[in-house]
Design a protein around this nucleic acid. Structure first.
Lengths: 354, 354
DNA sequence: CTGAAAGCGCTAACAA
DNA sequence: TTGTTAGCGCTTTCAG
């Protein structure tokens, strides 16, 4: 690494262009009242010197600093990362810096990091959770706009974004029914998660709208694991239930489900159609067969949240819980008996991914 | 969110404490030559006003800015995230901000983001890759220290950190041999990855040191997928090879391997001991049985890299390729025939994780 | 259209 | 031990 020879400052540019710093500043910032030629001379000089303005000096003159903070509950979470990527994409390439701080599920640490972000004068904060259960608001303690992503704030006056779980469940059930399945069960994750509850109720409602109910009478709850997916299938089998479709609370569960079905000699999709949730490609595309599933569009959510924060920083707040649409990604686990994949209408506007 | 009422500045604190700004500054920064009582008065005032210094004003007076940039090749990579977490842990809680920019595997974008980071006056940059293949150096174009993580720079004069793949392979083979396996095969990933090559050669060397060789004569290469793991097992079986141990290039491959072995009626670990690589818990702990594997300690690498960058910023550069030790995590896939897990010596100092 | 001068919030000489 | 003063690099009145 080359030792930092002092960087050119505005004075150097002005000197090189033969104007005052004031004029140089105006020229560089596209202010009016600068002669076209003068401006060009300044621009050339800046170019030649590879001048770039010191953002700290600029920040000193403006109310906004050009940095935003992302406070994550758990950076390692499968849901956090895609959202972070969307945020980064929306901000990172521009003039806004994204500072990350990871609370590692520690509320004390979260408070501390929040204070640190504030001390660093971020213009706004994105609070990024890893489950759908509403969380305490932080906004009281914060002098800048806050937007909550994935995990909403309990306060309706805060601005939160979550995926539309109900829509996902409805899409899943409608898809199974459209594929001719009538005897449908649901193997869900942990009931203490609101996401699980929302998916259950919406699935139930969707079934009813088709004049159907769960073959098992009620939703099976377990944890979010493959292992539970396998157990769930065995439970259905042991109960001697006749079923031809299973909607799973997550792709991990779904993978366990298709593995168990295969091991028990049931063909997917021939005997049983399976729909997952999350479109976690690690599972959805490597499963045998690949999984039809619900894509929550998390990266898009990241961009939406970033946009909303930008708007909020500009002074326009749009409080409330914003549920973002999800889409169904059809794959082989619900293919028609002729092996055809689901048709376009099912895809809810999205292209096939795998 | 509460509208930002103007924040207190040093002048306010000074005023409240009845001293000059200079004294207030000294008191707050723990400089000498300040009366104990005076200092306390200032501290109290600052506390009461909830004063926190404007970091931009501070940065203007110092050569360092208190921000570092992390330039990732691909934020969504399984290897990048743990390292990033280590970096964040090392820096985030302190006074240094971590700005992330994700190049998304695009070299043009990488160059652009690099310029952006420089324009933002970061004190140093961590270049975070997602494979072990040496990459072009960026350091030429950068006026601040750069440390490369996971993916090393081609330049020996740069400072790079990678996991010690050879050590991992050696641990794996030694472990299999210690567990009584003598007929060992290796199912590796894509040969174009240096990580794959290093693991192969070290495994070969380790076998030789025990007077052994690969039962298959040579290493089997494929991609890094479960599906290839299954194929690899079938290839060994079709070749009617007698084997009792398999070292896999990744946990994903290993998972495919144990699945295929089970489906073919071979017991793991009874008939065949299997060792993976990566300790990607998503696979290593949910596999049936759970996988003995090599943990690359990526989060620790993140901390090490962060520390090294801090040192470099302070002016001490330690160029070269630093290979960080890895460790073996024993689980059931290589358990003794009595079901016992591997003993402590095998664990290379680390506790069991799952 | 251009430039001199003031000031953003803070730190550091230098006096007092 | 304290306060005065002069910047750090930039933007912005306000004269010229």
């Amino acid at each position: 690494m080359t030792k930092a020879e002092k960087r050119p400052v505005l004075t150097d540019v002005a000197l090189a262009a033969g104007v005052s710093v004031a004029t140089a500043s105006k020229a560089l910032n596209g202010r009016n009242h600068v002669n076209k030629n003068t401006r060009q001379r300044v621009l050339d000089a800046a170019e030649k010197l590879k001048f770039s303005p010191n953002p700290f000096a600029q920040a000193l003159n403006f109310p906004v600093t050009g940095t935003i903070g992302v406070l994550t509950a758990d950076l390692s979470s499968r849901f956090v990362l895609p959202i972070l990527m969307g945020v980064e994409e929306a901000f990172g390439a521009g003039s806004t810096s994204v500072i990350i701080s990871d609370a590692r599920k520690d509320l004390v640490r979260e408070r501390f990091l929040l204070q640190t972000l504030i001390a660093k004068r971020v213009d706004g904060i994105i609070v990024l959770g890893d489950d759908a259960n509403a969380r305490p608001s932080l906004s009281e303690h914060v002098p800048v706009p806050v937007v909550y992503a994935y995990t909403p704030s309990v306060l309706a006056t805060d601005c939160s974004f979550t995926p539309d779980n109900a829509m996902g469940a409805t899409l899943a059930i409608d898809h199974l029914v459209a594929r001719g399945r009538r005897k449908i069960a649901m193997i869900n994750g942990e009931p203490r998660f609101e996401a699980a509850q929302e998916r259950s109720s919406a699935a139930h409602a969707a079934l009813q709208s088709h004049g159907l109910g769960f073959v098992s009478g009620e939703v099976l709850y377990g944890d979010w694991s493959e292992s539970w997916g396998r157990q769930g299938v065995r439970a259905l089998l042991n109960a001697r239930l006749d079923f031809d479709g299973i909607f799973c609370g997550s792709d991990q569960i779904a993978r366990g489900v298709v593995d168990a079905l295969r091991e028990e000699g049931r063909s997917v999709p021939h005997d049983v159609g399976v729909v997952g949730f999350d479109d976690w490609e690690l599972f959805s595309t490597t499963s045998r067969p690949p999984l039809t599933t619900i894509d929550m569009n998390l990266e898009h959510m990241g961009r939406a949240v970033a946009g909303e924060l930008a708007v909020a920083i500009a002074g326009v707040t749009r409080p409330g819980l914003h549920k973002l649409p999800v889409r169904l990604v059809p794959r082989e686990s619900t293919a028609g008996l002729d092996g055809s994949l689901a048709n376009r209408e099912d895809a809810a506007g999205g292209p096939l991914k795998a």
